[in-house]
Design a protein around this nucleic acid. Structure first.
Length: 290
DNA sequence: CTTACGGCCTGGGTGC
DNA sequence: TGCACCCAGGCCGTAA
């Protein structure tokens, strides 16, 4: 599933060839994941892609009108959801199943959007819409300081796993990198953010940055459908220590990795390295035997 | 306001 | 061969 490192890898790939390219055509198949399909077909052709950027798990295509000047702040927003792919192809290349959008470019190449589950999203953003769509998002985990991170956790009674996944707190972290960074910081996913010790917050900050940077270096984790803009798999899935490794041995202590539902998501952790808290929360339902 | 949780979207994989 | 079921990420509505 595309999270920060996967989206970053796609963006870096697209930046090698898209800036300066003009979109000459848009062809749509299924459109139920597109905010306004008619607007996409009407407004995108003729625009030049000035830049491609990542914002959390979103890709942002900055667009320029041919005339220059007026109405020049438009952009296209893409979220890959769980199975979304953006792949640069030759127009004559075979079309993979579940390919729903074809962007024809002025150099004769084609950018294709493929999404098996269609949990992704595409939207055209006019001048003022950028703030509306992206303004509520939290800190970028690779740009924040340790102090900003600690500040974000302070006083929060939510489980740390839920907070890591909350895009309004941090932008870009998903299930894989939440579990992997918690393992590195030796923090159990049900711990309340406010109860983390300063040195644990520090360890989590470092764990997040280490895991995310290493995952970017290895071009992301290909666990389901993820591939980069050239259709190639990443390899960070080979470095996962807990994610989807339940039943295997912890590489640090040899205990058996467990899986449990936390914050509505399956969570993977080492029960020895990542100690469960005594009390789950103020309305804990555990009897606390022993 | 904060947090928790269930439901919804979809379809590939799994297990019977 | 079929088929019910699980599960994924994000988001939204509801409840406490």
């Amino acid at each position: 599933m595309p999270e920060l490192p996967e989206v970053e890898t796609v963006v870096r790939g697209l930046r090698k060839s898209l800036p300066g390219r003009r979109v000459v055509s848009v062809r749509l198949e299924k459109t139920d994941f597109i905010d306004d399909p008619a607007a996409l077909e009407r407004d995108l052709p003729g625009k030049t892609i000035a830049d491609v950027r990542r914002y959390g798990k979103f890709l942002l295509f900055d667009l320029q009108s041919p005339e220059g000047a007026a109405g020049n702040q438009s952009a296209m927003l893409v979220h890959l959801g769980m199975t979304g792919q953006l792949i640069l192809s030759a127009p004559e290349a075979p079309v993979a199943s579940h390919t729903h959008v074809f962007f024809g470019l002025d150099d004769g190449s084609e950018l294709r959007y493929r999404d098996v589950r269609r949990f992704g999203r595409i939207a055209m953003l006019a001048n003022g819409d950028r703030e509306k769509s992206l303004g509520g998002l939290g800190l970028d985990p690779l740009e924040m300081t340790a102090t900003q991170f600690a500040e974000k956790l302070r006083g929060r009674r939510a489980r740390i796993k839920a907070l890591l996944l909350d895009q309004h707190a941090l932008r870009g972290v998903g299930n894989i990198y939440a579990d992997e960074s918690l393992w590195r910081a030796r923090i159990h996913p049900v711990r309340l953010a406010a109860n983390l010790l300063p040195q644990e917050v520090q360890a989590l900050y470092r764990g997040l940055q280490t895991v995310l940077n290493e995952a970017i270096r290895l071009r992301g984790s290909s666990v389901s459908d993820y591939v980069d803009s050239e259709g190639a798999c990443g390899s960070f899935q080979l470095k996962h220590r807990v994610y989807q490794r339940h039943g295997e041995k912890c590489s640090r202590c040899g205990s058996t990795i467990r899986r449990a539902i936390v914050a509505g998501r399956s969570s993977h952790f080492c029960p020895t390295c990542q100690r469960a808290p005594r009390k789950l929360s103020s309305r804990g339902k555990r009897h606390a035997h022993r």
